[in-house]
Simulated assay, not measured.
Amino acid sequence: MNNIFDSIPSDLSSEIFDDLVSSDTVKIERIISKGQTSPDFGWYDQEQHEWVIIIAGSAIIGFDDKPSVTLKTGDYLNIPAHQKHKVAWTDPDVETVWLAVHY
């Protein structure tokens, strides 16, 4: 038995990525952010679809060809493969806990 909130480190100066399940066709990861954003070097342009849900906290996802989306606790979003996107903002005051499914 595991819990999504277990083992959250006190030092969140860097974003945390933990693979929870991984196979040839799907990866489920927990992401923990606290004020981090995507790197400045460009957009994520992934080979697989990505479904994300905010378990706690809030974030803004930016897209290259449509308006940004604000996500809060309980909100989820499907990002199709090759949809260019980036994390524009995560709450700097509380942990944002994401669940991301790459399929």
Rank of each mutant, 00 (worst) to 15 (best):
M1F: 07
N2S: 14
N2P: 00
N3Q: 11
I4S: 07
D6W: 11
S7R: 13
D18Y: 04
D18V: 15
L20N: 00
L20I: 15
S22C: 06
T25Y: 13
T25M: 04
I28G: 05
E29T: 10
R30C: 10
R30I: 09
R30W: 10
I31L: 15
I31S: 07
I32N: 05
S33M: 14
G35C: 10
G35Y: 08
G35H: 08
T37C: 12
T37G: 02
T37Q: 14
T37W: 00
S38Y: 09
P39V: 05
P39R: 12
D40N: 13
D40L: 14
F41A: 12
G42T: 13
W43I: 12
D45R: 07
D45M: 08
D45Y: 07
D45T: 11
Q48P: 00
H49Q: 10
E50G: 04
V52H: 01
V52K: 03
I53A: 11
I54Q: 06
I54M: 08
I55G: 00
I61C: 08
I61G: 03
D64F: 02
D64R: 02
K66S: 11
P67N: 04
S68P: 04
V69K: 11
T70E: 14
T70L: 10
L71K: 09
L71A: 08
L71M: 14
T73I: 06
T73G: 05
L77R: 04
L77C: 02
L77P: 01
P80K: 03
H82N: 10
K86H: 13
K86Y: 09
A88E: 15
A88S: 12
A88V: 13
T90E: 10
T90M: 09
T90H: 05
P92G: 10
P92D: 07
D93Y: 06
V97A: 03
W98P: 05
A100R: 02
V101P: 06
H102I: 00
H102N: 06
